[in-house]
Design a protein around this nucleic acid. Structure first.
Length: 207
DNA sequence: AATATGATAGTCT
DNA sequence: GACTATCATATTG
């Protein structure tokens, strides 16, 4: 028995679950396409408001040097998580894209928190709600994402992780990626226009 | 508001 | 030995 879609933060809640076919496409489509989707880990999460695109011919991508070491997961099945440690301290979560054998993924950079706020506040030590998931490291801390989820499917019928399509249209913006030095001129960062939960605002003027 | 710095570990040169 | 898809805190203007 399915009741009417609940309303969260003024926005209608999620559409159907995303499947492997969603992620098997060109990462150029998936990275902006994830904006507005609902991400849940163990029932805790929110609406994706910021992503970045990484691919095999991209010097800034971990997959640039081939399917070796931790980057091997990026060449695995689409719709799985690639979780790695950043700067020795933080976890960062990606969703693997394109057919198996290709090394592409989307970095999850920020969420608008909607589900399980108390759990997120506890993990984030009572920081302001605006900063619960505003950044790749913060997002993983709030959702309890760590190395145990590396290589795990986000599209399997049963599992800890699920994604749902947006309920309505999404107002997209794009800009330069953040925190990298190589291939820094590619406008492969995507966001939901005007969201207060971005890790950093998108410049008003085109770059 | 902008800039500096330390924490800390895996991967690369 | 250097660098990194980061964050929190401290310092300066």
């Amino acid at each position: 028995m399915v009741s009417a879609a609940p309303v969260v933060g003024g926005a209608a809640a999620a559409g159907p679950r995303l499947g492997a076919d969603f992620f098997a496409r060109d990462v150029a489509q998936v990275a902006p396409g994830l904006i507005g989707c609902l991400l849940l880990v163990d029932g805790v999460g929110g609406v994706i408001v910021e992503t970045e695109r990484y691919q095999e011919d991209d010097p800034a991508s971990h997959s640039y040097r081939g399917p070796r070491g931790r980057a091997a997961v990026m060449f695995g099945p689409p719709g799985h998580l690639y979780v790695y440690r950043s700067y020795g301290i933080h976890w960062c979560a990606n969703l693997v894209c394109e057919p198996e054998g290709r090394g592409a993924a989307v970095l999850l950079r920020a969420l608008a928190p909607t589900h399980g706020l108390p759990a997120m506040r506890a993990r984030r030590r009572d920081r302001p709600d605006r900063l619960l998931c505003a950044g790749p490291g913060r997002l993983c801390q709030a959702l309890g994402v760590d190395g145990a989820l590396d290589g795990v499917s986000a599209v399997a019928a049963e599992g800890r992780v699920a994604l749902h399509a947006p309920a309505g249209p999404v107002d997209l913006v794009s800009g330069l990626r953040i925190g990298i030095t190589r291939a820094a001129d590619r406008a492969w960062r995507f966001g939901m226009r005007g969201s207060p939960f971005l890790s950093r605002p998108f410049p008003a003027a085109p770059e």
